[in-house]
Design a protein around this nucleic acid. Structure first.
Lengths: 191, 191
DNA sequence: GTCTATATAGCGATAGAC
DNA sequence: GTCTATCGCTATATAGAC
């Protein structure tokens, strides 16, 4: 970090990651060029390589940034009193972002899905995003005294991700909110 | 069709669509080049354009081919006696292809997901694949006397698609079979 | 009708000027 | 440390030979 960054707008590296995050979500990984990312970040095109050695390095930085978001979301949910309340809060997070999900897909699911085909190494990194969610959900179900906590976590996250795919495909935000609400009721019914 | 196609292997156009189907599923839409498709179909590279005016035209042919598969699968399930048996048969179809799904994703879901980002026009065409499944499932739930047939159809197809994404991401075929079996029991419990 | 050679364009990446 | 000019590659698509 240089001396001036504390008072001005974020540094170029941070701006590149932020722009890349948004564009990858809106346009997909393969459709987004370094030139577009650089322009959105207001950084000269060829200059990207000063901050990231390769395009994949920038993609990895985006994955890390998403991972930070997931961790901080889960950390905020951990403050809730009961595992049911925590799980319902997670479902609510998707309901709250239904419009974005219907427009561009789940930021996590669509990224992972695309990388699964694109690059084995990046896919492995990105799989951690879903794994973190699954592990956290499993912990909550276990705290509820469920022996089948792992299966319940899969059902929960799969329900959210499948609904996100359908909402995106049909451009139907309400589909996402309805399914998220149903999952909240389902969690309640297990209590 | 020429005079010789009846006795020999499928014509070049058909071979191109078949090869494209497989490669698009295994490698994704964007990672698969026309040259690869042509080579797999044993057709000279530049010659693809004699059969398909553009790359998108070939992609559309693949979508149509997938749509035919979906329709014939649903037609075969329609022969079963009860809507429960039909829905369970649909879930079983994914359980039976769990290995392929864990290796390359759901052939329908991953295609639709990728096209959602890639091209609006193709995405619209491909969305029909999921729409057909949803409409058919809704009919079955309605025949079971459920007022919320549309919501149940969403839950059902979302569950399958979400599980396919997780199975692909974690390379875990058993995850797909477990979740498909759970959906079968769920359908049974609604009867 | 069938196929080859090539045009065109856009991307990631690099070398080196400032 | 910052940026520009450009290289090399690959993909779609076309023009035209056979």
């Amino acid at each position: 970090m240089t001396h001036s960054e504390t008072r001005e707008r974020p540094g170029k590296e941070e701006r590149l990651v932020t722009s890349a995050r948004e564009l990858l979500h809106e346009q997909g990984v393969q459709c987004t060029t370094l030139a577009e990312i650089a322009e959105a970040a207001d950084v000269p095109p060829g200059n990207v390589y000063y901050y990231f050695k390769t395009r994949d390095d920038l993609l990895r930085a985006v994955i890390d940034s998403r991972a930070d978001n997931v961790r901080s979301l889960l950390a905020s949910l951990d403050r809730r009193a009961t595992p049911q309340a925590r799980l319902k809060g997670l479902a609510r997070a998707w309901a709250d972002s239904a419009e974005v999900v219907a427009a561009h897909g789940c930021p996590l699911g669509s990224l992972v899905s695309e990388l699964n085909k694109l690059d084995e190494s990046l896919a492995k990194d990105a799989s951690g995003l879903l794994r973190t969610l699954l592990d956290w959900a499993e912990s909550q179900f276990r705290e509820m005294g469920r022996r089948d906590a792992g299966d319940l976590a899969v059902t929960f996250i799969a329900g959210v991700q499948g609904a996100a795919l359908l909402a995106d495909t049909l451009s139907d935000a309400k589909l996402m909110t309805r399914e998220a609400r149903r999952l909240e009721r389902w969690v309640e019914s297990l209590g």
